[in-house]
Each structure stands twice: as structure tokens, then as C-alpha cells.
Design a protein around this nucleic acid. Structure first.
Lengths: 167, 167
DNA sequence: CTTGAAAAAGCGTTAGC
DNA sequence: GCTAACGCTTTTTCAAG
């Protein structure tokens, strides 16, 4: 599938899947879009095959789950190595996300969970051993993931979402 | 449910759901854990009710989807307002994630998708209007989400996969 | 926590518009 | 590319042990 070739149907499918990727079936989406379940199933299959949909993940409240040491580790990597090092970072036990930043010295962000302070130290050391230069580390107090609203009304605007009437 | 009261079964369930939250059924997990599907379903229900599982999200390759302007906006908020402002930031169109950092001046991280550069400017302005002080903004080149391996062998290590090697 | 039934829902495939 | 319909598989629900 070609890049950026999502039509309105695709975007709506992504939107609805974002809400509840586990319990929203093709039939549910088909109903909302006035399409047949087959069509939605085919579309989802293509979105997965093309790589637009990379997977379906859990949103976990790590704090509630008993892991209070959720941290953001900011690193520096040489541009030529950034890609490789970011990939190495993913393998470090405790790491939950890696983001590569286009420019600047703080160009690799690693989210990680430590079971205790020793474990946090270990993660930092392993990142260092990989070749990443740890320049900062901060406790994440809270994290909210939001669905991207742009899938809904990117071309047709002025479609207010419920919520601006909140008190 | 009480905090940090996850037992081995709960953690394994979280682990398997992390892999593919959409297509991993209770039965699949039950089979891997040598439990009945009912048990797994009950556990998942409790994890959801307790808030440990906050939701099931899509992992989207925004670049492939035709949204190349995936950015990280770093903001400063007064500690006393941080919580409220972070919540406001979630409502800004284009925002896909908000992270509150415990300490420091760079204490609110916002991930957002802009449709074009004007759109990025709008997002920055809206964050500013909300009361957040934008101190930095960077293009995210790539993002990888990883399952937290700690769910598997947090107390007993060197155990690659779940095994019923219990004596 | 498990079993075992019935009921429901999803899915893949086909053929056809 | 979308729809419809078939049959099959799977999951869920709900009883009870």
C-alpha cells in the first residue's frame, strides 16, 4: 500500500480502533460507518499489512500496577548511530518505549520502568554500555494517551467534539 | 482492588495482552497459562475495573499514515497547576499523549501530530493559551513501543518463557 | 477456580454487483 | 472496490460444582 493514501473510511476505522482496540469489532465499526463488516475487515487487513497499524497495545497504569518508578531517560547518540542505538535500547529490560528525535543533543528518549532504585541504576548503566549517553532522568508522574482526533474531520472541520461544553 | 496486588497470573495476562491486545483472546491466554478461559476473563475484568488496564490502543505508524509531523513539545507548568494544565493539553486537537514529569522546569511533555506547519503552530499556540509555557519542540523521527518484560519474570529471573516447570 | 452446556458473535470465503 | 450470504470457528455467557 502506498504512503499517505488513507481515505476517509480508513481514517474512521483508525479512529474507532483507537478508542478500544480490543472490543471494537469490524462489525461495530461497519455499523457506525454504514458499511459491511467485510469491507471493514478488508480495510483493517490492508492497514495492518501496509504497516500503518503496527499493533494493538495495552494502556497500563503502571503506578496502580505496583510499579511506581516509571521514568523518562534522555540520552544523546551520535546521529550516525542513533538508529542502531535506539534499537539496542529497546532490548534493555524495563524499557517500554524509545523515541528518536530528529535533531539536537537530547535525541533519544527512553521510557522505562524500574522495580526499585537499583533497577533504575541498572537500566541507566545498560543504556550507557550500549553506547547511549544518559544526560537526564526524570520520574514520570502520570501519562495520558489520547486518540488522535485528526482522523475524524481533517478535511471537514467545524465539527466540535463533545467536551467543550464542560464546566 | 488494592495497589500492587498483582500476582503472577495477572502479570502474565498483562504480558500476553501487551503483545497483541486485539487478537489475543482470553482463551489464548488461558491455554498458555494452563488455566480456564473463565478465570482469565475474570482476571481481565478485575484488572480493567481496578484501573490497572486503562484501555487498548492502536500503535499507528503516523509517518506511513501520511502524518510526517509527529512532534514532542516540551512545556513548563507551575507545579500547582501542572495537573490541571496537563489535562487541558489532552483536549487540544492533534495531541496524542501527555506526560507529567515529577520535577524540573521541563515538566510537561506533549506529543502531537500536526497536519502541516501551520497546524503545528496552532497546537503550540493553543498550549500557550491554556497556560503552558512551551520551551522546546522537536520532530520525532521514530517511536517504538515495547512490552514491559518485567511482567514475566520479575521475581524469578533467567526464565525465558513461562514454563509449567513448577515442582 | 473449574466445568460444560447453549447462545452469540466474529471471521474467511465465495459469488455477484 | 463494496456487498451479501453461507458455513465454520471461536468466544462469551451462565449455570453449577
Amino acid at each position: 500500500m502506498k504512503d499517505g493514501e488513507l481515505d476517509s473510511v480508513d481514517r474512521h476505522i483508525l479512529y474507532y480502533l483507537q478508542q478500544d482496540a480490543r472490543r471494537t469489532s469490524s462489525s461495530d465499526i461497519a455499523e457506525k460507518l454504514d458499511l459491511s463488516p467485510s469491507t471493514v475487515r478488508t480495510r483493517i487487513g490492508k492497514l495492518e499489512a501496509s504497516g500503518v497499524i503496527r499493533g494493538y497495545h495495552l494502556d497500563i497504569d503502571y503506578d496502580l500496577a505496583g510499579y511506581p518508578l516509571y521514568t523518562k531517560i534522555i540520552c544523546t547518540a551520535p546521529i550516525t548511530e542513533r538508529d542502531r542505538l535506539a534499537n539496542e535500547a529497546r532490548k534493555v529490560r524495563g524499557v517500554t518505549a524509545v523515541r528518536e528525535i530528529m535533531t539536537g543533543k537530547r535525541n533519544v528518549y527512553v521510557n522505562a520502568i524500574g522495580e526499585d532504585h537499583d533497577d533504575l541504576n541498572r537500566i541507566g548503566e545498560e543504556l550507557d554500555r550500549v553506547g547511549l549517553d544518559v544526560v537526564d532522568e526524570q520520574l514520570i508522574r502520570d501519562e495520558y494517551v489520547c486518540p488522535y482526533h485528526g482522523f475524524l474531520d481533517q478535511e471537514a472541520d467545524a465539527q466540535p467534539v463533545e467536551g467543550d461544553t464542560e464546566s
